[in-house]
């Protein structure tokens, strides 16, 4: 975060020294793009905030942990696909799940779907790429995430 701030600041200063008009034009373009997408993103985070409140972390741990085998895999994939959790929360949470007995392959599916599949953010994705692409990309990511979990299951005990 601080790094991003420093980089942006440095680029802005350099840009201003280089060409003032160009910089203003760039800032205007950036601001317009930001304003256009802002309502969609705001709506997404409102809906996700309410959903996450309704389904707390402890419940998720139960879904992954007690159901062994295929059920745990599918539960992890579904929760990961729907959730919108930042890495700063997701990785510690996954750490807790591991300690409470959830298998690593299940964690791999959870993390992978969390990162690659975004059902809640699909409206934002569709704004840029259209619904067709958003659907295809998310479906492919979902299938590959399951495959990654299965491979992880094979490889985990080999090393």
């Amino acid at each position: 975060m601080q790094l991003l701030l420093i980089i942006t600041g440095a680029c802005l200063i350099l840009s201003f020294i280089g060409d003032r008009k160009k910089t203003v034009l760039g800032l205007k373009k950036g601001a317009m793009m930001f304003l256009k997408i802002l309502p969609t993103i705001l709506t997404v985070i409102i809906v996700v905030s309410i959903l996450l409140y309704l389904v707390p972390e402890q419940k998720i741990a139960v879904w992954f942990g007690e159901e062994s085998g295929i059920d745990g895999y599918v539960a992890a994939a579904l929760v990961g696909s729907i959730s919108l959790i930042q890495g700063f929360i997701a990785f510690p949470m996954a750490g807790v799940l591991v300690q409470s007995g959830v298998d690593y392959p299940v964690i791999a599916i959870f993390i992978t779907t969390l990162l690659m599949v975004g059902i809640m953010t699909m409206p934002v994705e569709a704004k840029y790429f259209g619904w067709r692409l958003a659907l295809i990309r998310n479906s492919l990511a979902f299938i590959f995430a399951l495959a990654i979990g299965v491979f992880m299951g094979f490889l985990w005990n080999l090393f």
Binding site: M1, L4, L5, I7, T8, C11, L12, S15, G18, K22, T23, L25, G26, L27, K28, K29, G30, A31, M33, F34, I41, L42, I45, V48, S49, L84, Q86
Partner: peptide, 22 residues
């Protein structure tokens, strides 16, 4: 979420804008 949105996204869009013109 809102903190992330407000703190990070404007910076990203500044960079995108500058990238666009330069």
């Amino acid at each position: 979420f809102a903190t992330e949105l407000i703190s990070m996204l404007p910076l990203m869009f500044i960079l995108i804008g500058l990238f666009d013109v330069w």
